[in-house]
Amino acid sequence: MDDMIAIILSKYNYWTVITLMMIGLYAMIVKNNLIKKIIGMNIFQTSIILFYVSMGMKKDATIPILEHHPGMQEHVYHAADYINPLPHVLMLTAIVVSVATLGVALSLALKVYDQYGTLEEDEINAKIRKASVKS
């Protein structure tokens, strides 16, 4: 029993991330509304950001800004005192990427709405089928 709890305590952050990821993926696959799909995509990307950030966590460490003040010289910094900065850097990039993707996705959705007057995928498909039968 104690083993179980130890495992859960040491991994639950990753499991939460995977749960979020699956929620996003489910929305992307199953939902009919294009905006909901885009929201699912965003949840999916955000879960990966959480994954990276929680990876860089260290117990008993502080944020990755080195202690400094004027007149402080030749100080040796210990890696164990600061959490891992690299995942934060990478995720800054990933956040920007996800914002950029969201912008382009929304503008495509606007275009789709202009063209078909709806954002429900089945209605759009019905309209496409109708148009192809006509021509």
């Binding site: 305590l9 040491s10 991994k11 952050n13 860089g56 966590m57 260290k58 117990k59 164990a80 891992n84």
Partner: peptide
């Protein structure tokens, strides 16, 4: 995976 917050994990 190594445990959450483990300062000795390879990525840290």
């Amino acid at each position: 995976f190594s445990a959450w917050g483990d300062p000795e994990s390879p990525c840290n």
